[in-house]
């Protein structure tokens, strides 16, 4: 059974249809990259998978580990092992980073039938995972994302991913706005987290990140559909030729 099975997914925000029949199968252990021009629906797909309520699914289905993902609340999805690294992580003044992660980890472990970590175990884990993405562990005293630089915010997303150990990680434009050092740190973190029972869906506009995180599959999304799939060479081709030739091929541009 596939870990994630998206079938003919249609979604709209208000009256505007954005996803127009997405099909995608992701197996455990695989890394899939979804590329595409701005406005093609990549981030909408990530939001729909994470359960954002602004989007209305009008058709199709999503099976996660054989279960109907769309029927689950956002927090239920997270406890089941779905993780979204946000394109724009929200700043939460007054929400302490360590407290927040302790609560999140507790909820997820409880769902998996595991006891909560002791404070010492938790702090050890936090330090270890912060080091994985080159984040200063003093971040635990800070409010979630508050005053973080762009790079810190993205590192913090991958750090949270490392802490919560999801089975399906969706990275929404994690590379946008990153300098080369931060990009490497984020990619290194992701690579260390690759494992046979974890899958990644990496949404990106540029091929750049895929030099560091080598995907098993590359999909191109245009106008709410995946119009082409291939291996990593497809990403290079896109980098070279841009998106227009694909748009032409699928008949979106005259």
């Amino acid at each position: 059974m596939a870990l994630l099975e998206i079938r003919n997914l249609h979604a709209r925000v208000e009256e505007k249809e954005i996803l127009k029949g997405v099909n995608l199968t992701v197996n455990a252990g695989e890394v899939h990259a979804i590329m595409g021009p701005n406005g093609s629906g990549k981030s909408t797909l990530a939001s729909v998978l994470a359960g954002r309520e602004d989007y209305e699914v009008t058709e199709g289905e999503v099976l996660y580990d054989g279960k109907n993902l769309l029927e689950m609340e956002p927090d239920e999805r997270a406890r089941e092992g779905v993780f979204l690294a946000f394109q724009y992580p929200v700043e939460l003044p007054g929400v302490n980073m360590a407290t927040f992660l302790r609560e999140a980890l507790k909820a997820i472990r409880e769902h998996r039938g595991l006891p909560p970590l002791s404070p010492a175990e938790f702090m050890k884990l936090l330090k270890e995972k912060a080091a994985l993405v080159g984040l200063d562990p003093s971040l635990k005293q800070r409010s979630v994302n508050e005053g973080f630089s762009g790079g810190e915010k993205k590192r913090s997303e991958i750090f949270q991913l490392a802490m919560l150990e999801p089975r399906l990680a969706i990275l929404d434009e994690t590379d946008s706005g990153l300098d080369i050092d931060a990009l490497r740190a984020v990619a290194d973190g992701v690579n260390k987290l690759r494992s046979p029972d974890r899958a990644f869906v990496i949404i990106t506009h540029y091929q750049r990140l895929l030099n560091y995180i080598v995907p098993d599959y590359v999909h191109v999304m245009v106008d709410g559909r995946i119009v082409r799939s291939g291996d990593k060479s497809l990403a290079l081709e896109l980098e070279e030729k841009g998106y227009d030739w694909i748009k032409e091929e699928v008949g979106l541009v005259a």
């Binding site: 997270a78 979204l84 929200v90 999140a104």
Partner: peptide, 13 residues
């Protein structure tokens, strides 16, 4: 948005 963010980390509403 803040609530959604927290929920995507497993916290109940």
């Amino acid at each position: 948005d803040g609530i959604f963010y927290l929920r995507t980390r497993g916290l109940t509403l």
